[in-house]
Design a binder for these strands. Sequence first.
DNA 1: ACCTGAACACCGTTCAAGT
DNA 2: ACCTGAACACCGTTCAAGT
Lengths: 182, 182
Amino acid sequence: MPAIAKTGPDEIVDAARALLEQHGLDGLTMMAVAERVGVRAPSLYKRVGDRRALLELVVHATAEDLAGRAEAARHRDPVDTIRAQADGLRAFAHEQPAAFGLLFGVHGAPTPDPADTARTVQPLLEATTELVGDAHALDAARLVVAWANGFITMELAGAFRLGDDVERAWVWGRDRIVASLG
Amino acid sequence: MPAIAKTGPDEIVDAARALLEQHGLDGLTMMAVAERVGVRAPSLYKRVGDRRALLELVVHATAEDLAGRAEAARHRDPVDTIRAQADGLRAFAHEQPAAFGLLFGVHGAPTPDPADTARTVQPLLEATTELVGDAHALDAARLVVAWANGFITMELAGAFRLGDDVERAWVWGRDRIVASLG
DNA sequence: ACCTGAACACCGTTCAAGT
DNA sequence: ACCTGAACACCGTTCAAGT
């Protein structure tokens, strides 16, 4: 007998991303995803392997999203590009904090596709190459990304507890780093 | 009837920390902790409230550990202190990667005691005060900590996939940051 | 006082049976 | 082809009953 599919992998991944942001990683259960796409949990296994595989799809979708933004934030001036890459990463993290945490956290989450990672870093790498030269372009890119990721992660975790202006700390740190590459 | 306690909170926290490093956060189950301390899972609830409370104890113990190390890594020269704080944090993370991830990750883990956080940052804050003055001491400390946390987190997550020397990137970044504060 | 088996809720996953 | 109820394993948690 025919039997039309009620859902596909895309709807499932979208549902999973929504649940991730709304209820955290623990709220992203197979049962909750199933309910959201209008199906019973066992049916999901015909589409996505298992929960781990679904997390991989979520990571992949998030990484693609981020790569697209990074590519869109290029400027003529390498200093402008570096600032835009850092600010863009932060904006992305504020929009999708849980997905950002999944992508850059430590705890055994799936790793993004190397190709997406490469696309994401590329514009920054071009800018640092222009600023500091080939020999240290990668070191410089790692400096910028490490600082931005660390700052954003601490910000999202509420780790800046000594008061004062977090916004100012971002700009101050960002511009110190940019200046140190000049 | 008497009935001597078979275990106390300290053994339970030690068991939990060991499980965390050996089997990850998912391996830190109440049943596994119970088995390690020689008791059945229900008995743990007379000692630690619940799993969440146990995680808080683990975070607290880890944060105290880290604070002690930070205090032990002071030097006369503020530049030496900053280097030592960054290197010490990294050494700590390499020894207890899972605990480090729990402490600095994003995902709804318990937050360390503010007092422990303050102790941990204090030596760095004194050094940055000496280097850049009161007005930007906190901004500078945040720059250093954000970079170090971000670098270490990416390193532990295996996010440095573009090859090359990670060790060199650490030293290069660290010394750029220190120099930018001079 | 402290410990435990039994029980319940919840989640991931499999599979035989339905359409 | 696709979907589902039933079932199993595993974990967190509670509680009445044991010593």
